[in-house]
């Protein structure tokens, strides 16, 4: 199945912004992001902690709806889904 994965802001700089991924059926949202992020150590480290869990400030969206880090592990994606991953910014 084909799904779109989009990394925003700093994540996009490190990992590339948008891509279409041909993922096996029933791939979880978390595994999709994990696979894509593992191409770049710094990019991976900015999204996942040492235990491989999402860092707590990372915001995950599936088709425009927020998905919690816990739900991302068990959320199976479907053909045509769009997944967005972004870091809030804090500066003023």
């Amino acid at each position: 199945m084909k799904v779109t994965l989009r990394f925003f802001a700093r994540f996009g700089e490190l990992l590339g912004k948008d891509r279409v991924v041909d993922a096996p059926e029933n791939t979880s949202l978390a595994d999709l992001v994990r696979d894509a992020a593992s191409q770049n150590g710094e990019g991976y480290g900015s999204i996942f902690d040492e235990q491989g869990k999402f860092r707590d400030y990372v915001i995950l969206m599936r088709n425009g709806k927020r998905v919690s880090a816990a739900a991302a592990e068990r959320t199976a994606l479907s053909e045509g889904d769009e997944v967005a991953v972004f870091p809030p910014v804090a500066g003023g």
Partner: peptide, 10 residues
């Protein structure tokens, strides 16, 4: 609310 970093903002 507003916040920024680099060339990105929300």
């Amino acid at each position: 609310h507003g916040a920024i970093r680099g060339l990105y903002g929300q």
